[in-house]
């Protein structure tokens, strides 16, 4: 290759680098020192921006946590849904065994448990029904049954239809209406959750961008002067971008840490089985802290950083056109 071409390419590369404002050590030191000076100088505006970001993000996190937990409760209920398969009276032990194995390999079945009439009675002891059954001295009305747990509760009707065709099945008992209602609620909650979190996220972007716009507007003269003296757009922009990034990250980290700790304390204290929540609304499963926060933490931090940078860059565009 022609050496002069290489030289030209190198020159162009250096020129392009300079046009971007340059990220050499000398410039980086300048950008960071300017950023910190600016944050300290505009303490009130910086604090306002951080608090605005934090307020918006705390609402986003809280909505996400609430929706996630509603879904967790619904999933928990769904997971406990069973189909009770009542077996024909005249089935032999071998035929019951065959039915058991057929159920085990049937579609959408995760678990099958055989329950003898005696076990069924034992399970009933203490309940209102038990006395009636014992009094009737007709233990036969308690059939041999299989309790079946499904992989996917949403396929309940298809699965039950399939099972009812098996040889030896007398009837199937399952809370059809309750399951359908539960599925409907679960779908609605998921949609509402997505809409609420998305709307809040968009609102946060608008509010935060406007707050950062105020900060940038208050310094438009500074930007104008920099441009007159010969600053490239990126030379002007970098300290603002770093400032936006810091404000965004700080504004995201504070509510994240606060909600993380608060949720952990809440879950540990009152929402575990046997805790206050369990006593109030029954034994139910809330999402563990470790299932939510390590997953959302990077997303929230990147979200904060992103809107911080976006806010700065978009607010500056107008002022850079000098």
């Amino acid at each position: 290759m022609n050496p002069s071409t290489n030289k030209d390419k190198k020159k162009k590369k250096v020129k392009r680098k300079k046009e971007r404002g340059g990220l050499g050590l000398r410039n980086l030191t300048y950008y960071f020192s300017q950023t910190f000076k600016s944050i300290l100088r505009n303490k009130f505006m910086s604090l306002t921006s951080v608090l605005t970001v934090a307020s918006c993000i705390i609402i986003v996190i809280a909505s996400f946590v609430v929706v996630t937990n509603i879904n967790a409760v619904l999933e928990h209920w769904e997971d406990n849904l069973k189909i009770t398969v009542h077996v024909e009276d005249d089935l032999t032990a071998e035929q019951r065994d065959l039915l058991y194995h057929q159920l085990l390999v049937a579609d959408n079945i995760v678990y099958v448990q055989y329950i003898s009439p005696e076990e069924a009675l034992e399970n009933l002891i203490g309940s209102v029904l038990a006395d009636a059954v014992v009094a009737s001295e007709d233990h036969q009305q308690l059939r041999h049954t299989f309790e079946v747990i499904l992989y996917d509760t949403r396929a309940l009707s298809e699965t039950s239809q399939n099972l009812s065709g098996f040889f030896g099945v007398y009837t199937l008992v399952y809370p059809a209406d309750a399951t359908e209602a539960l599925i409907r609620i679960s779908n609605v909650v998921t949609i509402i959750g997505i809409v609420v979190v998305s709307v809040l996220a968009v609102l946060s972007v608008v509010i935060i961008t406007n707050t950062i716009k105020l900060t940038v507007n208050s310094r438009r003269n500074e930007i104008l002067i920099m441009k007159y003296v010969g600053a490239t757009n990126w030379f002007v922009r970098w300290p603002f971008v770093i400032e936006g990034l810091l404000i965004g990250v700080l504004g995201a980290a504070i509510p994240l840490a606060a909600t993380w700790v608060l949720y952990d304390v809440t879950i540990e204290g009152i929402a575990q089985p046997g805790g206050l929540m369990a006593a109030l609304i029954g034994d139910t499963t809330f999402r563990a802290t470790g299932d939510i926060f390590p997953f959302i933490a990077p997303i929230i931090i990147i979200f904060g950083a992103g809107i911080g940078i976006l806010g700065s860059v978009s607010s500056m565009r107008r002022h850079l056109n000098v």
Binding site: N221, E222, L224, I225, M226, K227, Y228, V229, G230, A231, T232, N233, F235
Partner: peptide, 18 residues
């Protein structure tokens, strides 16, 4: 920006960074 670096500029209202 590179053109402006070849030209000093002075304004009536000074335009210093406060």
């Amino acid at each position: 920006p590179y053109l402006r670096r070849k030209m000093g500029v002075v304004f009536q209202d000074f335009r210093l960074l406060p």
